[in-house]
């Protein structure tokens, strides 16, 4: 079950505005979800309830769509989103071991966020920095030529 949050008023207003832009048409649900996720970063249950009520469709239907498409997520990104490149070059140079170390130290899986909301972990394909393989990004910052032993120190930087 999702965590309960209190929606910020500006989020509520923005979601209503997005729905209105699509004429509160239930047939535009996917577009509305796209723009809402782009704005908030994820699709909390409360946002889905609000969209359902604005578009006059059931919230079960909205969740049906959100849970069907892998693009949509109900997990908020952490304050410091960690992306580990699993492209070919990074992979052959040990990205998986780096990823495993992040998982172990943060105690989360790929696609999850730590309980304090600080870190989230995603695995992605080539980010075009193969020369630095294995490479990760935290927010805008790039870290290259990593070994599992470096992970602890990197996390410390953000604590």
């Amino acid at each position: 079950m999702p965590v309960k949050i209190k929606m910020k008023q500006d989020h509520i207003d923005k979601i209503k505005e997005i729905c209105k832009k699509f004429n509160n048409d239930g047939g535009e649900l996917i577009n509305v979800l796209h723009q809402t996720q782009h704005f908030i970063g994820y699709l909390p249950a409360e946002a889905q309830e609000l969209i359902a009520s604005e578009l006059n469709v059931s919230v079960a239907h909205v969740y049906g769509v959100v849970s069907f498409y892998s693009f949509f997520t109900m997990t908020p990104k952490g304050e410091y989103p960690i992306s580990v490149c699993m492209g070919t070059a990074c992979y052959v140079r040990g990205a998986e071991r780096v990823l495993d170390e992040f998982k172990r130290l943060l105690n989360i899986n790929v696609g999850e966020t730590t309980a304090d909301g600080k870190f989230s972990l995603t695995a992605l394909r080539c980010i075009g920095a193969c020369g630095l393989a294995p490479v990760i990004t935290i927010g805008e910052k790039v870290y290259g030529r990593l070994a599992p032993d470096d992970v602890k120190g990197i996390i410390e930087e953000y604590k």
């Binding site: 059931s58 969740y63 049906g64």
Partner: peptide, 10 residues
Amino acid sequence: TVGALSAVNR
């Protein structure tokens, strides 16, 4: 028209 149920996941 209660809408409590829907197909979810894939």
